Simulated scan of single mutants.
Amino acid sequence: MIFVFKTNVDNISKVKKVTPKLNKLFPNSNWNFDLEDCDCILRFESDNNSMKEIIFLMKILGFECEAL
């Protein structure tokens, strides 16, 4: 499944903050941020439906995250 989220992760420093958590909690997934997009898109590819967990994790880390 591919999920697309609008976030406020707008620079590499913020990406580095979430990277270890995303990699640890979702080790078999592929993800990336599009920092050039006005919505700071997070694209997330996973074998299961982990949308709620991704949103929850991002909010715990202090970031906005909304499914598109």
Results as ranks from 00 to 15, higher is better:
M1N: 00
I2A: 03
I2T: 05
F3K: 11
F3V: 09
K6D: 02
K6S: 05
T7F: 04
N8T: 04
V9K: 03
V9C: 01
I12L: 09
S13R: 06
S13Q: 07
K14F: 02
K17Y: 12
K17N: 14
K17Q: 13
T19W: 08
P20N: 05
K21G: 09
K21F: 15
L22C: 00
N23G: 06
L25M: 15
P27Q: 04
P27W: 05
P27G: 03
N28D: 14
S29C: 10
N30D: 10
W31D: 05
N32C: 11
D34G: 06
L35V: 03
L35E: 02
E36M: 12
C38K: 13
L42S: 01
L42E: 02
R43N: 08
R43I: 07
F44T: 10
F44Y: 15
E45T: 07
D47S: 06
N48K: 13
N49Y: 13
S50F: 10
S50A: 14
E53W: 10
I54N: 09
I54H: 08
I54L: 13
I55Q: 08
I55L: 12
I55N: 10
I55V: 15
I55T: 12
F56L: 12
F56N: 12
M58K: 06
K59I: 13
K59E: 12
F63L: 01
F63D: 01
E64Y: 00
E66M: 07
E66W: 04
A67N: 12
L68I: 15
